[in-house]
Amino acid sequence: MVNEALFWIVAIITVTGSLSLLFARKGAHIAMSIVTVMCGLAAAYVGLGAPFLGVVQIVVYTGAVMMLFLFVLMLVGVDQRESLKETIKGQRWIALAGAGGIALLLISVIGRVTLYSPDEFTDGNPEEIALVLFSDYVLVIEVLAALLITAAVGALILTHVPRLVPKHSQVELAEARILAGADPVNKPMPGVYARHNALDVPALDPEGKPIEDSVSRVLEIRHQTQEGAEFRHQLADADNPDHDAQPSDAPPRDSHDRNPRQGKGESR
């Protein structure tokens, strides 16, 4: 007989895991839930006397198929959240009625039949499976091999993007950039001449003026830079020793109202 405890564990794991399909919002969460379901099913297979299939289930489904799903989720954007609001009129009710209906029908049929099940049962160990597979079903195996190869080639073709323009080498790219009028010299690093060795602070030229180009353009667009102006008075302090130098780690007062707060808000 099959182990009853195992059955209930498997049933709870698989049903709760699969309910995530209906209620979870993030693709990655769903995928991980399904991985759990697959593992539960593998346990069920072992419990039903099919250890070979249980192993194959783990290797193929949790190891390959679900990982492939995760890869694709990453490719199309793992951050996508899906709204569960239904857009097609009546679809939710039709779907629930259909699914419930099929479940009811199947269970009513299953509950009505009684099948003789033998107590002694030969486990589906790999030797016996192999014996059947490669004797009775050898032709099917061959056909499936062809199907797998075809599927692989088909996937390659479907995802292949033909190259429209010839590939450029790095040398060509560099030359094109120079021809377009770019500065051949590296831009100055940010903050290296300042007292803050930070990315969001522009470098200062020998006259003490900030060099705008030294800060990454991205930071500028996000308003996460600190202007070089606040360091002027530090320079002025250096020129006039009678003023006390402010602590270097304290942010200048005039920069408080804009940059750091905004930057914090944006970058979480």
Partner: peptide
């Protein structure tokens, strides 16, 4: 059967 109907509902609803 239960898992099957949950799967089919997922196909229809998501």
């Amino acid at each position: 059967a239960i898992l099957f109907s949950i799967g089919s509902a997922a196909v229809l609803l998501r």
